[in-house]
């Protein structure tokens, strides 16, 4: 299948290879949580809620009492994909993505400022259309910021792939299931440090570099957007306070 039209250079959904899907973010969507956010990348829509920092509930899980314990739970809603199927909780894929998100967020949270406490991040996929783990990380970042948890930097994530000999930014579900390489990158935007890098196919070194470069560009664009959203949110809060 032609994922990039050779005559016009457009992708199946009308984007150019280096274009992202439309982003949309909303902060404070779950009133109960300490921080929450809704994040959309095209048709992929996830919601994240953060509880904490609060007292460690299960002391057994605490490894180092001088640092905060970060926990993460990733779930896909039963209705998030085309066919509605009940998925068992804690399947391998969810467990892996939970772990990935936790590690990525841990790299940015200043855990040493919050000893004897725990932070819970819940991410739920409402609608899946490729790139869910990137969207979850971005949503988690927003939710953490909304909860006022101290962080080193904004963590953002974006995926890119390589199809029809072209590096493509932000794969949607059709492109993702094409079987080509799928590179997910997470970075600390200002510090320019990579916190996550995953790829599930073979790619020659030099091609890989251009593909990863593209994903990093995408991450930076997302970081700018997130910063804008947060700034606006802060302004709104300021107004409310008067």
């Amino acid at each position: 299948m032609e994922y990039v039209n050779p005559l016009t250079g457009f992708r199946v959904d009308g984007r150019r290879p280096n274009e992202m899907r439309q982003l949309k973010a909303e902060v404070g969507v779950v009133a109960r949580a300490d921080g929450s956010a809704l994040f959309e990348m095209g048709n992929t829509r996830v919601i994240a809620a953060v509880y904490g920092p609060r007292e460690v509930q299960n002391k057994g899980q605490q490894v180092n009492s001088k640092e905060a314990l970060v926990r993460c739970e990733y779930r896909m809603a039963d209705f998030s994909t085309g066919d509605r199927r009940r998925k068992p909780k804690g399947d391998r894929r969810s467990t892996e993505i939970s772990l990935v998100i936790r590690q990525t967020m841990e790299a940015s949270i200043l855990t040493h400022l919050m000893p004897h406490s725990q932070i819970d991040i819940f991410v739920q996929v409402l609608q899946a259309d490729g790139g869910t783990r990137s969207a979850c990380i971005n949503a988690a970042t927003l939710a953490l910021a909304d909860a006022g948890i101290p962080m080193r930097d904004i963590v953002t994530s974006c995926s890119s792939g390589y199809l029809c000999s072209t590096p493509l930014l932000d794969l949607n579900y059709i492109e993702d299931s094409a079987g080509g390489p799928d590179v997910t990158v997470g970075i600390l935007a200002k510090m320019d440090k990579v916190t996550l890098l995953q790829m599930d196919a073979k790619l020659p070194m030099d091609t890989f570099e251009t593909v990863m470069e593209l994903a990093i560009e995408g991450c930076k664009a997302i970081a700018n957007y997130i910063r804008e959203v947060l700034l606006e949110n802060t302004k709104r809060l300021e107004c409310q306070r008067g």
Binding site: G14, E19, R21, Q22, N43
Partner: peptide
């Protein structure tokens, strides 16, 4: 520059399924 418009398509793959795809309109 990006205008998003989603359209709904039904495909038959054994059973009826609703497929939603993005369709970007540009200028």
């Amino acid at each position: 520059m990006l205008q998003s418009k989603t359209f709904v398509k039904k495909t038959k793959a054994g059973r009826v399924q609703k497929v939603v795809r993005e369709h970007y309109l540009r200028d």
